[in-house]
């Protein structure tokens, strides 16, 4: 499978999906006009990556400074998928990266961490 990079725009984050490095990275803002459509290539990639193409260890870096409600919903769906994979015994590390001055980014990270107890979810201050 091929790596996938989507460049950052005013409304959407930079997405970097790298199979060899076992890396899933999102960085920037997320309030696309059609959230589920925008993230579909990423969700498809992630599903096919974890269907046998994954590394022994996968790192997920989320550095989202601002996002809308539908992005929030999509991230929940994403972590659901990750949780399923972890339940199958895969090793995944999640870093929720936030700026010390960005309270809402931290609070959102705390929400996800609380909701996905089984995940190795770290809150990382920049």
């Amino acid at each position: 499978m091929e790596n996938l990079t989507i460049e950052e725009t005013k409304y959407t984050p930079r997405i970097n999906l790298n199979m060899e490095d076992g890396l899933i990275e999102l960085k920037g803002k997320s309030y696309p006009e059609n959230t589920f459509e925008f993230y579909k290539p990423m969700m498809d990639w992630v599903e096919s990556y974890f269907s046998g193409s994954e590394q022994a260890k996968t790192i997920i870096n989320f550095e989202i400074i601002y996002f809308n409600s539908s992005s929030s919903k999509l991230f929940f769906d994403f972590f659901d998928l990750i949780e399923e994979v972890v339940n199958k015994g895969k090793y995944i590390e999640i870093n929720w990266i936030y700026d010390a001055e960005n309270d809402s980014a931290l609070e959102a990270g705390e929400d996800f961490k609380e909701d996905f107890e089984k995940l190795n979810f770290k809150l990382v201050e920049k």
Partner: peptide
């Protein structure tokens, strides 16, 4: 519960 959480978070942020 999740939807409520998202909504509450969104309301709080909107107010801010």
């Amino acid at each position: 519960r999740r939807q409520d959480k998202i909504m509450a978070r969104s309301d709080k942020r909107q107010k801010q």
